[in-house]
Design a protein around this nucleic acid. Structure first.
Length: 364
DNA sequence: CAGATTTGACCCCG
DNA sequence: CGGGGTCAAATCTG
């Protein structure tokens, strides 16, 4: 994308370079029998982190699928936070305040337009009933509701930085009535808060091991890695256990990419979008997706070695139902964290710059 | 005391 | 009209 900031580009390159270096290190480690498992794992995680960051950069740099922001026109491409009205600062406390600024449109409410995706997490045990639901972001609970037909109430969370930075991300946590150990977490909106990548550009690629996640204090540089470490772990976790992620109700117009897909090959993906029939997704998108849609993310995702064949083997060609049913076993292990990777930039939609074709980087 | 949670009421939308 | 989502005052907690 042309509106990618220069430092972002640098950043991206740094990350990719970093990842490559790390991969090399890993390669060495693999060839050395004395290499410890921990060291290898550490490297893997760093690699994942690196690529995750790169992907994030790619996604966030484009006119991301943020309908409001995009619709807002030339105003502040990135500064979504600015457009958020603090609500209740002045004026009527309720109704037509917070929304209208972004809506500038009648019927369409944020409620409808915000993209959302759902994942189901099972925690067979765990310290607390919901303690494990930490996904790396700081959420603040703002409501709880009894849902008709559901045994358990639904909890509503919003990003802690909502006021400070106008981060619109929210999530709902609903415990399954069938299996109380299963939590269905619906995410909405993306995080625009700083814990993503809008930080000061990292100094440089640090090919070496950056201290084994000891100092978590310096958010500048550690926040992201820290975040990603979790992600990496989580990704690994989801690989093993088949975390199930259901994406639905993307608000992005059809000309947008389907970013959430990028990552979700770890599990079942279901996208439901108004105007986009589910069956269509099941029958077509899923089938084509690995080759056409996944553009940057999947083709470049190291952690998704899952090929289209595999995707298809999951039943992608026919429909998603069958595999979904089969894979119904979600995380059985203690899922201390859920897949935060999507929160980062779930909706990156950007054309993939050929120059950035990951395939040419020859990683792995 | 600041920030998080609880909780009842309000509002949107189907 | 009612269900679901959100707000915000009250309350709790570290």
């Amino acid at each position: 994308m042309e509106n990618m900031g220069s430092w972002e580009q640098k950043n991206l390159i740094n990350e990719l370079t970093n990842g490559r270096e790390l991969a090399k290190q890993l390669q060495i480690h693999l060839s050395v029998s004395s290499s410890s498992h921990d060291a290898r794992e550490s490297l893997v995680q760093k690699i994942l982190t690196s690529y995750e960051k790169a992907l994030s950069l790619l996604r966030c740099s484009g006119p991301v699928g943020e309908p409001q922001a995009a619709a807002a026109g030339g105003g502040g491409a990135v500064g979504i936070g600015m457009s958020e009205s603090p609500r209740s600062l002045s004026g009527s406390p309720r109704s037509e305040d917070s929304d209208k600024e972004q809506e500038h449109k009648d019927g369409s409410r944020k409620r409808k337009t915000l993209p959302r995706w759902t994942k189901q997490v099972q925690m067979s045990l765990g310290p607390g009933p919901e303690g494990p639901l930490d996904d790396g972001f700081s959420w603040r609970k703002y409501g709880q509701k009894d849902i008709l037909g559901a045994k358990y109430p639904r909890s509503y969370y919003k990003c802690t930085h909502r006021n400070a930075q106008g981060c619109l991300a929210t999530k709902q946590v609903q415990r399954s009535d069938d299996d109380p150990t299963i939590f269905e977490i619906t995410y909405r909106g993306r995080h625009t808060c700083t814990q993503v990548s809008q930080q000061i550009p990292p100094p440089a690629a640090l090919p070496g091991n950056q201290g084994l996640m000891d100092s978590k204090d310096h958010q500048q540089f550690n926040l992201q890695p820290q975040q990603n470490q979790q992600q990496a772990q989580d990704m690994l976790l989801s690989f093993q256990s088949g975390l199930r992620v259901v994406t639905e109700g993307l608000d992005t117009p059809s000309d947008q990419a389907f970013p959430p897909f990028c990552f979700t090959s770890t599990s079942n993906i279901k996208v439901e979008e108004p105007g986009f029939s589910t069956s269509m997704m099941d029958n077509n998108i899923v089938g084509n997706f690995p080759t056409s849609f996944v553009s940057p993310a999947a083709s470049g995702s190291n952690y998704f070695s899952m090929s289209s064949d595999q995707m298809n083997s999951l039943g992608g060609n026919q429909n998603l139902q069958a595999p979904e049913a089969n894979l119904n076993e979600i995380i059985s292990a203690a899922a201390s964290t859920t897949n935060p990777q999507f929160e980062q930039f779930p909706f990156g939609s950007m054309e993939f710059d050929p120059n950035f074709n990951f395939d040419h980087l020859g990683f792995f």
